[in-house]
Design a binder for these strands. Structure first.
Length: 424
RNA sequence: GGAGAGGUACCGAAGUGGCCAUAACGGGCUCGAUUCGAAAUCGAGUAGAGGAUGAUGAGUCCUCACGUGGGUUCGAAUCCCACCCUCUCCGCCA
């Protein structure tokens, strides 16, 4: 959520952000609603002050001069009715303004390229090397079933399209990746592990910016006011909702494994084959709370924390600085990490590392007390480290051999107990 | 799910219709005094959110804030209703 003070004083910056992000939102409607709200509020407060002053004498008056008291009471009743009417009006106007403000996207940082996604995204870093094959590499949807590690047909039988059933060593590979990711983040990168609920209240979704904008993307329960999370970012960032964090604890770092659920309503028909786009997947997420002046540096570190994993797995990857139009609603800067998958011969997104500035903290009410004694909003950041099953796609497709087997990356072997997946 | 108790500041806690909310009282924390230093003691500080005015500064004024949301009343922490959370007991359950 943007600061209403900022919207009032720099509406052009907000207009610029809306245009750059190709968002649908109306600054002028916000300003108009705000103006009306302030007027009504001021009037209501004047009446309240008048009424408070009069009521202070009322008790005494009722004892000393009952008749005078009754007369005043009649007058105050009328005052009170007027005040209540004005308060109701102010409240309605405030609600309207806040609804409109919630639809305003975050303002991109100055170093973010402006423009539509395809042409203006910038590859800023690359790592690993694409493997050389003496044969035509297979796509994971052919390779996986042959190796007995995934079963797409039975997954569809159980849950419909867009789900994966991992079997045997495939299931173990998922578990191995999650365990290894978390071990690296907790042992080497300073993150404290948490394991959050995957069903959350509406307020929690609003806190991180998934709602009210993206209702269509979320799974919602029918009989309870709960949503299935699209990412651990949602419950984890909200751990400290409406709290004041001790300044000396910043930056605060958590990582979490969770299931993620996405309806993919806007992407129907896209990536229908295989397990690149599925309704339920596993992900390890890194989340940070920082002082405002530290968030840019922490964003770089967080992104590097994810890249370490890709390097050690030996996958070919690149870091993409996402241009304004491709950015998330709540982001002020976003890097995506992509892995090249040899079988399908394309770059697939396996991580998105974002700096939200104070946008989420303001919505969620997460603050800290600065050295001058003032309360300030923290900056929040998060990034996948990393997302499954796309990493499994990368492993299967890039490490496949001429005989149809797949070599397990060195770092995962202690978790897997085998060094190779072979056809069944 | 049923019965009961409770939710006031960093913590404990008083207040049961107006003189009680920058919130009694006790504790914690910060700073200062005292001390060679510390303990003890003494003193000061320890709440936010919003509006008006000012320059988005300082200052001043006002409003809101007693779990949340409504209601009654001239006036609500206090009375009424609904909901949320915590604790105890019972039931159920992995």
């Amino acid at each position: 959520m943007l600061d209403i003070q900022l919207i009032r004083s720099h509406p052009d910056r907000v207009r610029g952000a809306i245009a750059a992000k190709k968002a649908k939102a109306d600054v002028d409607a916000v300003l108009a609603a705000d103006e009306k709200w302030r007027h009504a509020t001021t009037e209501a407060q004047k009446l309240q002050a008048e009424s408070n002053a009069a009521n202070r004498d009322m008790g005494r008056l009722m004892k000393e001069n009952r008749a005078e008291g009754e007369k005043l009471k009649v007058r105050l009743k009328e005052l009170s009715d007027r005040r209540k009417a004005l308060e109701d009006e102010a409240k309605a106007l405030e609600g309207e303004r806040d609804r409109l403000v919630l639809d305003l996207p975050n303002i991109p940082q100055d170093d973010v390229p402006v423009g539509p996604e395809e042409t203006h995204n910038r590859v800023v870093k690359e790592g690993g090397a694409k493997p050389a094959f003496g044969f035509k590499p297979q796509a994971h949807w052919d390779l996986g079933p042959k190796l007995g590690v995934v079963d797409f047909d039975r997954a569809a039988k159980i849950s419909g399209s867009g789900f994966v059933l991992f079997t045997g060593l495939g299931a173990r590979l998922q578990r191995a990746l999650v365990a290894w990711f978390i071990d690296v983040h907790t042992r080497e990168h300073g993150y404290t592990e948490v394991y959050p609920p995957v069903l959350v209240l509406r307020d929690t979704m609003v806190g991180t910016g998934q709602l009210p904008k993206f209702e269509e993307e979320m799974y919602k329960l029918k009989d309870d006011p709960l949503y299935l999370i699209p990412t651990a970012e949602v419950p984890v960032t909200n751990i400290y909702r409406d709290e004041i964090l001790p300044a000396e604890k910043l930056p605060l770092l958590h990582c979490a494994f969770s299931l993620c659920f996405r309806r993919e309503a806007g992407a129907a028909g896209k990536d229908t084959r295989g397990m690149i786009r599925v309704h339920q997947f596993d992900k390890v997420e890194m989340v940070k709370w920082t002082r405002p002046e530290e968030s840019e540096a922490e964003h770089e570190k967080l992104t590097a924390n994810a890249e370490v994993l890709l390097n050690r797995l030996g996958l070919p990857w690149r870091r993409v600085l996402i241009a304004t139009a491709g950015m998330g609603f709540s982001n002020q800067k976003q890097y995506d990490l992509e892995v090249h998958a040899a079988g399908v011969d394309r770059w697939i997104e396996v991580s998105s590392c974002s700096n939200f500035g104070e946008f989420q903290a303001r919505r969620a009410g997460i603050r800290f007390r600065d050295t001058d004694g003032k309360l300030r909003y923290v900056h929040t950041l998060n990034g996948s480290g990393l997302a499954l099953p796309r990493i499994v796609v990368g492993i299967l497709e890039n490490f496949q051999q001429a005989d149809g087997s797949v070599v397990i990356p060195e770092v995962l072997r202690p978790y897997m107990g085998v060094d190779r997946l072979t056809a069944v």
